[in-house]
Simulated scan of single mutants.
Amino acid sequence: MPTVVNSSLTYEILMYLNSFYFGMFAICELGMNCVKAAKLESPCLGRMHLEFALLLFLIATEGGRIYLGRKGNLTEHGLPILLGIVLSVPSSLATLYFLFWQCRVLRLEMILCSIQLVVLASELIISIMCLIAFYRPPSPEE
């Protein structure tokens, strides 16, 4: 008997785990930004306001993405999942900024941002599989 992987269950597990991981990620990133603001020299201080604003933007978009993804998955509606997919683009770009383009990147930030990007990519793939499963016509009973 072939086993069928339930993509919505996998998506729900990923979203549930990401809600906790992203909370830890945001707190660590906020702490590291505070430490960098206190310890850095003047050329990077001008960009610290931008980095704090970008972190708040990332918290808002990732929180909305997680909420919409879980809501769409539990109600089996495609529109919230589709909006979550759209929100994954700015969320991944902000994470890439913290990984590559900020003034000083700590090794811990590199590790945390890399894990966040892997989780984002896997959720994106599974969410597309969920959309396909939700909108696929039911197979006729034999």
Rank of each mutant, 00 (worst) to 15 (best):
L79Q: 09
I85L: 15
I126K: 03
L112Q: 13
G78V: 02
F134V: 02
I132K: 12
L79R: 12
E123I: 12
L124M: 10
R107Q: 14
T75R: 07
G72C: 03
R70T: 13
M110P: 00
L87K: 04
I81F: 11
H77M: 06
G69A: 05
K71P: 00
F134Q: 04
V89Q: 02
V119A: 13
A121M: 09
S88K: 06
R104C: 11
A60I: 01
S114K: 04
R136M: 13
C113R: 12
R104G: 08
L74I: 08
F98K: 05
E141Q: 14
L96R: 05
S139K: 12
P90S: 07
V118G: 13
E141A: 13
I128C: 14
L83F: 13
G84N: 10
S122M: 10
R65T: 03
L96P: 06
I59T: 04
T61Q: 02
F100E: 13
V86M: 15
E62D: 06
H77E: 09
I59G: 01
V86H: 10
N73E: 07
L99P: 04
L117R: 02
S91H: 07
Y97S: 04
Q116L: 08
Q116A: 15
M110S: 13
L68K: 01
L112P: 07
L106Q: 13
L74D: 08
V86T: 13
G84I: 02
G84R: 03
Y97E: 09
L117E: 04
L120Y: 06
S122T: 14
V89T: 10
E76P: 00
I132C: 09
P138W: 07
I128M: 14
T61Y: 01
V118W: 10
L74T: 08
C113N: 15
E62P: 00
N73D: 08
H77S: 09
M129R: 15
R70G: 07
S122F: 05
F100L: 15
L99R: 13
E141F: 11
N73K: 01
I81S: 10
Y67E: 00
S122H: 06
P90D: 07
E141H: 12
P137A: 09
H77K: 09
R136Q: 14
A121Q: 04
L96Y: 09
I128K: 09
S88A: 15
L117K: 01
L99G: 05
V105F: 04
Y97I: 03
P90C: 08
G78N: 01
E62S: 10
I125P: 03
P80I: 04
G64K: 01
N73A: 11
L87R: 03
V89K: 01
C113S: 15
L106A: 15
N73L: 05
R65F: 02
Q102N: 05
N73M: 03
G84W: 03
Y135E: 12
